[in-house]
Amino acid sequence: MCRSVKTLFNLEPPATSDEVAAAALQYVRKISGSTHPSQANQEAFEEAVAAIAAATQELLDSLVTAAPPKDREVEAAKAKARAAKRFGIEA
Rank of each mutant, 00 (worst) to 15 (best):
C2R: 08
C2W: 02
S4Q: 11
S4R: 10
S4H: 06
V5H: 10
K6E: 15
K6T: 09
T7Y: 06
L8G: 15
N10T: 09
L11Y: 03
P13R: 02
A15Y: 06
A15P: 10
T16P: 01
D18K: 15
D18S: 15
D18M: 13
E19F: 05
E19G: 05
V20K: 13
A21N: 07
A22E: 14
A22V: 04
Q26E: 06
Y27R: 08
Y27D: 02
Y27A: 10
Y27K: 07
K30L: 15
I31G: 00
S32P: 00
S32D: 05
S32W: 12
S34T: 14
P37I: 03
S38E: 12
S38C: 09
S38M: 09
Q39P: 00
A40S: 12
A40W: 08
A40P: 01
N41F: 13
Q42R: 15
E43S: 11
A44T: 06
A48L: 01
A50H: 03
A51D: 14
I52G: 01
I52R: 12
A53G: 14
A54C: 02
T56F: 02
Q57L: 08
E58A: 14
E58P: 01
L59V: 04
D61T: 14
D61N: 15
S62M: 06
A66T: 13
A67H: 04
A67G: 00
P68Y: 03
P69E: 11
K70D: 11
D71C: 14
A77W: 10
K78N: 12
K78Y: 10
K80G: 01
K80Y: 02
R82H: 12
A84C: 09
K85N: 07
K85S: 07
K85Q: 05
R86Q: 13
R86P: 01
F87K: 09
G88S: 07
I89G: 00
I89S: 04
E90Y: 05
A91Q: 00
